[in-house]
C-alpha cells in the first residue's frame, strides 16, 4: 500500500483558532471575491470552463498526494494556487482553490468550517493574487521570453506560499490565539522552506506542460487579466511585507486589537466561575469549588452518554430481533 499523505495542514486553520470577528470578516471578504470571480468566469470564459474548473480542482487536490522526500521525514508538497493561477488566470484560480479548500474542510476536516473563509482567503485569494502579480510582472519584464515562465513560476509559487503563511500568522495574532512575535516569524520561517517545495513542483509541472502542450500555458494569458488584480497583488505584497515585521516586533499592538474584540472572546479578565459560589455553600476555597464543579460536570456528561448508549443498544437489539423474526 502506498503511503498517501496530504498537504501538511499548517496553512489550514482549524476551528477554534480564529476569533469570531476575524473569521466572519474574512468570510465576508471571501464571499464577495468568490461571487465576483463566478460572474467574471461565467462572462469571460464561457460555459466550457465549468467542467474544466471542477476537474482541475480535483487534479490540484489529487496533486497534493504527490510528494517527494526532502529530509528528516518531511516532504515537499504541492498547494497548487500558483499552478492554478498560471494555467487558468486569476478568477478561475480563485474558484478552483475555493473548491479545493472547501472540500478539504467539509469532507476531510483539513481546516475548519468557521475558519474556512479565512483559509480560502489566505490560500485561494492571497495566494492567487500574489502569484498573478509576480508571474505577470516577471513575464512582462522579460518580454514574454520562455525562461520567464519558469523563473516567474518559481518565484510566484514561492512568494505566494510565504505570503499566505505570513497572513495566516497575522490572523492568529489578531485573534489572540498565538502571540504575534511567535506566530508570524514561525509561520514565515517554516514556509520559506515549504514554499521551495511548492516552487520546484510548480516549475516541474510547468516544464512538463511546456514540452508536451505549450498551448495550455497560453490559456491563462489569454484571459482578460485585469490591471485591478495586478494592483491588488502589488498592494497586498507591500502590505504584508510591511505589516509582518512590524507586527512581530510590536506584538502589543496586535494584542491590543485582539483584546478589543469584545468581552465575549476575552472574558478571562473577569475571573471565571464555573459554578457560582452559592451553589456550594460552605466551600470558600475557589480551587476546591472548581474541582467539585468539574466533577459534577463530568458526571452530567457521563449520565447523558450512558443514557443514549443504553437507549441505542436497546433499539438496535430490538430491530435486530424483529429482523430475525421475519
Amino acid at each position: 500500500m502506498l503511503a498517501v499523505t496530504f498537504a501538511p495542514p499548517v496553512l489550514h486553520i482549524p476551528d477554534g483558532f480564529l476569533s469570531v470577528l476575524v473569521a466572519l470578516s474574512l468570510w465576508l471578504v471571501t464571499i464577495v471575491v468568490v461571487i465576483i470571480a463566478l460572474r467574471r468566469v461565467n462572462a469571460d470564459l464561457g460555459e466550457r470552463q465549468v467542467p474544466m474548473m471542477g476537474v482541475l480542482a480535483a487534479a490540484i487536490f489529487a496533486g497534493q498526494m504527490l510528494n517527494f522526500p526532502v529530509a528528516g521525514g518531511t516532504s515537499g508538497h504541492l498547494l497548487g494556487a500558483a499552478l492554478a493561477t498560471i494555467l487558468m488566470g486569476p478568477w478561475a484560480a480563485v474558484i478552483i482553490m475555493t473548491c479545493v479548500i472547501g472540500i478539504q474542510g467539509l469532507i476531510f476536516q483539513d481546516g475548519g468550517l468557521l475558519a474556512m473563509g479565512a483559509n480560502i482567503f489566505n490560500m485561494g485569494i492571497v495566494g492567487v493574487v500574489i502569484t498573478h502579480f509576480v508571474y505577470r510582472s516577471i513575464r512582462a519584464a522579460a518580454g514574454n521570453r520562455v525562461w520567464s515562465i519558469f523563473v516567474g513560476g518559481f518565484l510566484s509559487a514561492w512568494l505566494s506560499v510565504v505570503l499566505s503563511a505570513l497572513i495566516t500568522g497575522l490572523e492568529l495574532a489578531l485573534s489572540g490565539t498565538s502571540p504575534a512575535n511567535v506566530a508570524i516569524p514561525a509561520m514565515g520561517g517554516v514556509h520559506i522552506l515549504i514554499g521551495l517545495g511548492e516552487a520546484l513542483i510548480t516549475v516541474g509541472a510547468l516544464a512538463f506542460l511546456y514540452f508536451t502542450r505549450p498551448d495550455l500555458l497560453k490559456i491563462g494569458e489569454a484571459k482578460p487579466a485585469g490591471r485591478g488584480i495586478w494592483l491588488a497583488g502589488l498592494v497586498m505584497a507591500i502590505a504584508v511585507a510591511v505589516a509582518s515585521p512590524l507586527a512581530s516586533s510590536h506584538p502589543d499592538g496586535l494584542e491590543w486589537v485582539a483584546e478589543q474584540q469584545g468581552f465575549l472572546m476575552h472574558a478571562q479578565s473577569a475571573p471565571y466561575h464555573i459554578v457560582p459560589d452559592y451553589l456550594f455553600p460552605g466551600i470558600e476555597n475557589q480551587a476546591l469549588a472548581t474541582i467539585l464543579a468539574g466533577i459534577v460536570g463530568v458526571l452530567v456528561v457521563f449520565a447523558v452518554a450512558l443514557g443514549i448508549a443504553y437507549a441505542r443498544r436497546n433499539k438496535n437489539a430490538a430491530s435486530a430481533a424483529s429482523q430475525t423474526q421475519h
Binding site: E47, R48, V50, P51, M52, G54, V55, L56, A58, A59, A62, G63, L66, N67, F68, P69, V70, A71, G76, L78, L83, L87, G197, L200, I201, T202, V203, G204, A205, L206, A207, F208, L209, T212, R213, L216
Partner: peptide, 30 residues
C-alpha cells in the same frame, strides 16, 4: 534518490502529467 531538485522535478512532472490529463478530460466532459 538523486538530488532534491531532481526529485522535485520528477514530482512536478507527475503533477504536470496529472494536469494535462485533467485538461483533456475537462474537454471530454464538456
Amino acid at each position: 534518490g538523486g538530488a532534491i531538485v531532481w526529485r522535485a522535478r520528477v514530482t512536478g512532472g507527475m503533477a504536470g502529467n496529472l494536469l494535462l490529463r485533467s485538461f483533456e478530460r475537462g474537454d471530454r466532459i464538456y
